[in-house]
Amino acid sequence: MTIEQELANVTPEKLTVEHVSKWFRTRRATVHALDDVSLTVREGEFVCLVGPSGCGKSTLLNIIAGLESPDAGRVLADGKPVTGPGRERMVMFQESALFPWLDVLDNVMFGLKLKPQLKNQERREVAEFYLKLVGLEKFATANIHELSGGMKQRVALARALAPNPRVLLMDEPFAALDAMTREQLYGDIQQIWAKRRKTIIFVTHNVREAACLGDRVVLFSPNPGRIQEQFTVDLPRPRDINSVELAKHSTEIMRALKRHLRPEISEVAE
């Protein structure tokens, strides 16, 4: 063993994507959604997957979540192959996917009720803790339809955090929100990430958003879905999406993106 190996302080690999390929067969055509994609995510890392629509980034997220299975290759979570969805890797969707027949607190408690080792009182306390974390403790008994879009995504975040997963998979969770609400949520998600030390994979088509949130930005290109380039963003946190340094990073990523896909530029927002 060399001295370098002895002194290295390597964070363990949380997720490993090994040579994953995926095709979608529809009646009209076969779409090559992912082509030999490999990716490693370390424990506690915040990784953003960016690319235009149809580049397979959401598909990869679903495969990591275990909601879809790859046609080739495999995904390892903590060294074990992913075979289906699990509480260790919670997903947050673009639409909040909250259950309208439950109130806010019961929505957050849904995942906790599936944890057999907890008592009901404890479940309630845990749910209240996470509602407080997202700043909605006053809305515990509200109905879902009474919440604004931003509040719904906060509840969805609390629901995803409640079973205490190590990995959070977010599929364009802020895409449908207005700019003001989104900026607030950028702050919140960074804060929660720092407080709870989760591993986060965040899918977006917004380059600036990716640069603002990610330790690392992974650039995808479509037809077939491939990883083109990876960027490390080493700005101090919490980051302001409007800062000049951030703009430099996002411009760099944007340029790379345009290089890789001339025809699809229009679909990507800076």
Binding site: G84, P85, M90, A97, F99
Partner: peptide, 23 residues
């Protein structure tokens, strides 16, 4: 999406039907 969301929280077959699809 309801069933998908539920499945990530550990809900399966019968539980999904009673607690998600039915309500």
């Amino acid at each position: 999406i309801y069933a998908r969301a539920a499945s990530t929280m550990g809900s399966k077959n019968f539980h999904t039907w009673i607690k998600v699809i039915l309500p």
